[in-house]
Amino acid sequence: MERPIRVLVAKPGLDGHDRGAKVIARALRDAGMEVIYTGLRQTAEQIVNAAIQEDVDCVALSILSGAHNTLLPKVVELLRGEGADDILVIGGGVIPGEDIPFLKEKGIKEIFTPGTPTQVTIDFIRGNVNR
């Protein structure tokens, strides 16, 4: 029996909309993955604690609040501090194109902007998890 890929879907930042996060959570579930959904307003520390305990293969961060340039690199940095830099970190949401190279340089493996078909995200996760 093939073990499903485990993905933590988290919504860092202070804004109160998790529609995007829920859409991607459902799409990943329908693709046969186990999605650990943690809800709104997660701090980077909470996300990393959950990722470690759940031993996920991937952390998918959905962000709208504009704080992506601090929050996303912080998650990667904290994971590294826990020796968990083998976990794939990806981001999605309203992120300006000019910020993407910076985020990738900080270790976020891919950024999915609004309108990206969910299948693209699914394929990326399947192709890039370390297992």
Binding site: P4, R29, G32, E34, I36, Q46, N49, Q53
Partner: peptide
């Protein structure tokens, strides 16, 4: 699909930063 959304942590968010609490979610099948 064998997939699942494991959402119990949503109700336990404050416990997430307590270093003496460990939470693990499991899908029922597979």
């Amino acid at each position: 699909t064998g997939g699942a959304i494991l959402g119990d942590r949503v109700r336990m968010n404050d416990l997430n930063t307590d270093k003496d609490v460990f939470i693990r979610s499991m899908g029922a099948r597979g």
